[in-house]
């Protein structure tokens, strides 16, 4: 799963940092991870540190296990996070119940270690 193209992202996560690519040619900040800039098709990019702050665009709550590995986590949310710097990420918001999660909830990144991988998730931001 980890390859040359996404290693920097996961290495940053392991170090407790959320980094995404900024195109050196046109300056576009992009996510998902890609070998080319979807704006200008340049391959030159640098991994930029983000604040990790964002808001919930929308979310859903899984109440049915489509995948056995997730059965014991039911119910769990999956949310689209609008990152402060522009890109959007799919992730989970931890520490909020299905009744508490809201559209426009302010969140910040956190990292959860799963089977040796540090995975970016989000938590409610401190007020």
């Amino acid at each position: 799963m980890i390859d040359e193209g996404n290693k920097a992202f996961w290495d940053a996560c392991a170090a407790g940092e959320l980094r995404v690519q900024r195109c050196i040619t046109c300056g576009h900040l992009r996510y998902p991870i890609s070998t080319v800039c979807p704006e200008c098709l340049s391959e030159d990019a640098a991994w930029e540190l983000l604040s990790g702050r964002g808001t919930v665009v929308s979310f859903c709550i899984f109440r049915h296990a489509y995948n056995e590995a997730w059965r014991d986590r039911l119910p769990y949310n999956v949310a689209i996070i609008q990152l402060e710097e522009g890109p959007r990420m799919l992730s989970n918001v931890h520490g909020v119940s299905p009744d508490e999660i809201r559209v426009d909830l302010e969140v910040k990144v956190a990292f959860e270690v799963e089977q040796g991988f540090s995975i970016p998730v989000f938590e409610r931001a401190a007020r």
Partner: peptide, 28 residues
């Protein structure tokens, strides 16, 4: 997602996208 990357966050199946869409429509 690219590869099966959204599975990392437990995003499986076809209903979830529409659920996210519906939730935002409800909120707005």
């Amino acid at each position: 997602g690219r590869g099966d990357s959204w599975g990392i966050w437990g995003m499986f199946g076809n209903a979830a996208n529409s659920a996210i869409s519906a939730r935002r429509h409800m909120a707005l």
